[in-house]
Computed example of a mutant assay.
Amino acid sequence: MAHSPLHYERLRLRHLRLLQLIDEHGSLRSAASALNLTQPAVSQMLKDLEFAMGVPLVDRSVRGVVLTETGLLALRRSRSGLATLDQLVRELDAGQTLSLRIGTNSALMYNIIPEALRLLEVGRSKTRFQLKTGLVGDMVEALSEGELDCYVGRLDWDQVPPRIARLLTYDPLLDTDLILICPVDHPVAGLETPRARDLVGWPWAMPSRESNNRIVLESAMRSTGAAGLTAAVEVSADPNGLINLALALGMLTCVPRVALNEHSHARDFKVLDVANLELSSIRIGFATTAELRQMPEIADLREAMLRAARTWTARTNEG
């Protein structure tokens, strides 16, 4: 089946909606009902869409229709675009200016994100910003579904499904190490050269089990031959919460260095230099879709993030 420019020019939004409805219902009859069209009309829409793309988008059987691998890819692309269009319509209906939806990790809310928004003169510019924090997997999924315009944070490509990875563009921003901290009056803080075994037996404020930071820490501990750590408290996707709990409860914890806010708690905790424990660094980057990357507002935001990252890296190296 060859790509048809004529059919492509005739595509409308409802053709793209059709892919969503087929995926949801697995039936052309149900899709037709949702679109308030007859089934023959929907069948013709599907043929037009397949001719426009030049490839089959569904597999047909007596049990209904399902999207092919190519159909699923087309759905991913169209879903992101449709979600962005829906967001624009809501903003225009409400008389709002453009709003950028940014997904990120809580660790970046203390240095990189505030500095980037300061550079963009938030409050004086016409663009508004909606920030959403969460686990990496949730943020990447939301970006691919069109629920976010960009994501700033850790991105482990080997854990990103290929169906999502092919939709994204990526710019590295900075590398940050994982650090271990505890209150200055904790017994481990008084050790001149603590080792991995000295961390065992104490209560920890830990990231949730699915957190990459916890996986890295526990893997590094195992590689030294030390016993497992005791997670007395677990916190999901909130490094600042871990720091506050560790200080309040006299525990140890593990957070990215970029999560430290030098304006608070700096005198209350000690960063531990554990001689035989190697914690891999974290790459922080800026991800968006190929389509959204061309937006001037996204380009400006990306540049502000790069500048903020360079500032933080220089300040950290000087310290």
Rank of each mutant, 00 (worst) to 15 (best):
residue 230 T to Q: 07
residue 249 L to S: 11
residue 229 L to W: 03
residue 267 R to Q: 14
residue 210 E to S: 13
residue 245 L to Y: 02
residue 265 H to Q: 08
residue 232 A to L: 12
residue 224 T to H: 01
residue 217 L to I: 08
residue 281 S to A: 13
residue 252 L to I: 15
residue 220 A to M: 03
residue 262 E to N: 12
residue 229 L to F: 07
residue 263 H to N: 15
residue 218 E to T: 13
residue 242 L to K: 05
residue 283 R to F: 02
residue 248 A to L: 11
residue 270 K to Y: 05
residue 210 E to L: 10
residue 263 H to C: 11
residue 278 E to Q: 04
residue 218 E to A: 02
residue 225 G to R: 03
residue 254 C to T: 14
residue 212 N to K: 09
residue 240 N to H: 12
residue 285 G to N: 05
residue 227 A to N: 13
residue 214 R to C: 06
residue 214 R to V: 09
residue 269 F to M: 06
residue 220 A to L: 00
residue 272 L to E: 07
residue 270 K to L: 13
residue 241 G to E: 03
residue 220 A to N: 02
residue 273 D to M: 04
residue 268 D to V: 12
residue 240 N to M: 14
residue 240 N to E: 14
residue 258 V to N: 00
residue 250 G to P: 03
residue 234 E to R: 10
residue 256 P to K: 04
residue 260 L to F: 07
residue 257 R to I: 10
residue 211 S to M: 08
residue 248 A to F: 08
residue 274 V to M: 00
residue 230 T to N: 06
residue 235 V to T: 11
residue 239 P to Y: 08
residue 279 L to M: 09
residue 245 L to G: 03
residue 258 V to F: 02
residue 285 G to F: 01
residue 224 T to I: 03
residue 235 V to R: 06
residue 268 D to W: 12
residue 262 E to F: 09
residue 240 N to Q: 14
residue 211 S to G: 10
residue 230 T to G: 01
residue 262 E to I: 08
residue 267 R to F: 12
residue 274 V to H: 00
residue 242 L to G: 03
residue 281 S to K: 10
residue 221 M to R: 03
residue 232 A to Y: 12
residue 239 P to T: 14
residue 230 T to E: 06
residue 275 A to P: 08
residue 225 G to L: 04
residue 268 D to N: 15
residue 229 L to C: 07
residue 267 R to D: 15
residue 273 D to H: 10
residue 228 G to K: 11
residue 250 G to T: 07
residue 268 D to Q: 15
residue 251 M to I: 08
residue 240 N to P: 10
residue 218 E to G: 03
residue 278 E to T: 00
